[in-house]
Amino acid sequence: MTAPSAPVIDAEGVGKEFVLRRRTRGLRRAATRVPAVSEVSFTVRPGETVGYLGPNGAGKSTTLKMLVGILTPTAGRLRVAGLEPARQRTELAYRIGVVFGQRTTLWWDLPLRDSFALLRRMYRVPAAEHRARLEELVELLELAPFLATPVRQLSLGQRMRGDLTAALLHDPSLLVLDEPTIGLDVVSKAAVRDFLRRMNAERGTTILLTTHDLGDVERLCRRVMVIDHGRVAFDGDLAGLRALAPVPRTLVVDLAAPAPPIDVPGARVIRTDGPRQWLELAGNPAAVIARVSHDHEIADLTLREPDIEDVVTRLYRERPDPSAPAIAGDVRHNVE
């Protein structure tokens, strides 16, 4: 059995190569091998919260599918909760919770409450245990007002809270989330993040999530892994990532009237659009703002943080990998 300190995820040189068959001339078929993930190695220990980042097509989803057992690695060794995912998929299902942000595990025609009841049977959770856990989740995620509503009538935010509950009802030790906040409004995003943080802090649930949202990473992940071209390009904390690939903040200035590019020390105009100008900040934003508002009549000001995409893009540009295959992003397959 897994000792308490044993890693929840143990990946050693894990790779996945897809074989694309294309019909060339006549009945001939050409097979091209396209590596989606090549030699990814990492471990995740119990209680960690890890953000798994990377641009579209970098190999995030492929990795996630291997972790939950719906894709078999073509190379390397992979253990999740002490099991070999693809071979022991059903056993693994009892130990992990999975949320795909763009899909739902709930039944669209059933009220939320009935979906949960069906899941209880599926995971063979004793009734008393189920009741206690559901009560707790309903309170934390404020599900009570729409427990009796059929899933098809729920808003996206409500549905996501339902999906999170569904993933946690069988008390998994590992929660795998694929873009859990995609499409959610600010309030729902905050609710989901707070909830995940609490689950991690209070219950010690290990969380691995992919996201394009820097907010998710900042609020949740003490550890960040960036994957690019199928390889781990960075593994550390967010501050480390930022230090490695610094991206300046941007000040968006709406002037009262169109004007030539603003010229102030510590900032550089990178774009203008009528009365609106974008300034890349090199120094102290407060000083720049004071100077700009002294020199010009201003209608509005916004300070924009770089999003994770900018940081990650910068990281790639700083560290090009000449050996990386070029088209890992083109791979398509059924189980998306």
Partner: peptide, 15 residues
């Protein structure tokens, strides 16, 4: 569900 890929959800269930 096969066509849309939702079958992935079915495959990660213990049924």
């Amino acid at each position: 569900r096969i066509r849309t890929g939702d079958v992935a959800i079915d495959l990660i269930r213990p049924v």
